[in-house]
C-alpha cells in the first residue's frame, strides 16, 4: 500500500488555533494541575493582555531562570548557595527536617515553631514511576546525618504509600547511625469534630496518642 496524499498541504490542523498558539498551550499543559482547557483559557487571556503584561511574565520567568539556585547542602531552592536557612547561624543545625519538595519547606516554616534546618529529597520513592533511591538526595542525607553535630532527623513526608516507603527506607539506612529518627504524627486535624474524622486517621491518632499526665 502506498502513502496516502495529504489533503491539506499545510501544518495547520483544521479546526485548531494557529500553530504558535497551540504550541504555547502545549507548553502550559505541562504545568502541574493544568489541563487542556485551563491552558487554553490562560493562553487566550494572555493574548488579550497588553504587551507590557506579557513582558512582566517573561521577565519574571527569566529572573527565575537566572537567579534561582539549588542549595548544595539541603537542595532547597534559593538565590544564594548555601540557602538562607542553611546559612543562618541562628537556626538549630542539629535537627534536620526531611521533606519531599522545596514547597514543603514553606508549609513547615509557616508554623513558625521549627527552627532547625531542612533536607529536600526531590520526590518520594515510587517504583511504579521508576523513582529509586539514587534518583533522590538520600545518600546526601545519610552523609549529613552522620555528622557528629546532627542529633535528630525528622521525616516530614506525605502519609501516602510512597511516603511510607521513603520513610522506611531512610530509617533503615540510618539504623547504625547515631542519630534520632522521628516521623510526623498523624492525627485529627485542627478545627474538625472527632465524629467526622475518618477511621484511618482516628486509629493513627489513637495509636500515637500523647500522655497528658
Amino acid at each position: 500500500m502506498g502513502e496516502f496524499p495529504k489533503i491539506h498541504n499545510t501544518d495547520e490542523i483544521p479546526g485548531e488555533a494557529p500553530q504558535v498558539i497551540e504550541n504555547a498551550i502545549n507548553v502550559f499543559k505541562q504545568l502541574p494541575g493544568i489541563g487542556d482547557r485551563t491552558a487554553r483559557r490562560i493562553i487566550y487571556w494572555l493574548l488579550g493582555q497588553p504587551g507590557e503584561k506579557l513582558e512582566e511574565f517573561i521577565s519574571a520567568l527569566e529572573e527565575l531562570k537566572n537567579s534561582v539556585k539549588i542549595c548544595s547542602v539541603c537542595f532547597n531552592v534559593s538565590i544564594t548557595d548555601p540557602c538562607h536557612i542553611c546559612a543562618n547561624p541562628e537556626r538549630d543545625h542539629s535537627v534536620i527536617c526531611v521533606v519531599a519538595e522545596p514547597q514543603d519547606i514553606a508549609a513547615i516554616e509557616s508554623t513558625r515553631i521549627y527552627d532547625g534546618v531542612y533536607h529536600v529529597l526531590g520526590g518520594l520513592l515510587d517504583a511504579m514511576r521508576g523513582i529509586g533511591p539514587e534518583d533522590l538526595h538520600i545518600a546526601e542525607l545519610v552523609q549529613r546525618a552522620a555528622q557528629p553535630e546532627v542529633k535528630e532527623i525528622i521525616l516530614a513526608l506525605d502519609p501516602s504509600n510512597e511516603g511510607e516507603t521513603t520513610a522506611r527506607h531512610i530509617a533503615k539506612l540510618l539504623k547504625d547511625v547515631d542519630v534520632k529518627v522521628t516521623i510526623l504524627a498523624q492525627g485529627i486535624s485542627a478545627g474538625t469534630a472527632l465524629e467526622f474524622a475518618d477511621p484511618r486517621t482516628l486509629s493513627a491518632a489513637l495509636t500515637n496518642r500523647t500522655e497528658l499526665k
Binding site: 523513582i131 529509586g132 516507603t165 522506611r168 527506607h169 533503615k172
Partner: peptide, 13 residues
Amino acid sequence: IAGGMVLIETIDE
C-alpha cells in the same frame, strides 16, 4: 531503577 535492591528490601518490609 538504580539502587533498586535496597528499595526492594524496604518495600518487602
